[in-house]
Amino acid sequence: MKLAVADYPLSEKRADLIRTRTGKALSEITVAALKSGAATMDDLRITRDSLLLQAEIAEAAGRPRLGANFRRAADMVDVPQDFLLQAYELLRPGRAKNKAQLLDTARVFRETYKAERVAAFLEEAAEVYERRGLFQFRY
């Protein structure tokens, strides 16, 4: 069943649904747990599941575009930082020299990271960039 506005904030109303990346409940993340090593930086990152739940909340609140952004973000959670920044750089004007470079990156998102929505988004960009001449050299 989809979440409703009344389930928000999830950390208060539906804490049962929130788990850290290593499977801990929010209440287990304490200074003492950090000190003992029971919790780490990994437990302080958002999860794919949380983002998908927040997408449901956004959609229930009448914000479908925000929901779509959260869904793209959910796809990115497990993408390594370096690759993410590399893809961002490639999307800036004039960085990719041709459509194929963007399509290759889209393929990695799809095949390696199962990030279908991000892949489709990059493919759309590739088509628009070609149309608007954005593969031109800038510096």
């Binding site: 990115m76 993410l84 999307l91 988004f121 960009a125």
Partner: peptide, 12 residues
């Protein structure tokens, strides 16, 4: 597209 990508990256 690059900005929207960045927006999703922050959320992620």
């Amino acid at each position: 597209w690059s900005k929207a990508f960045l927006a999703a990256a922050y959320a992620s």
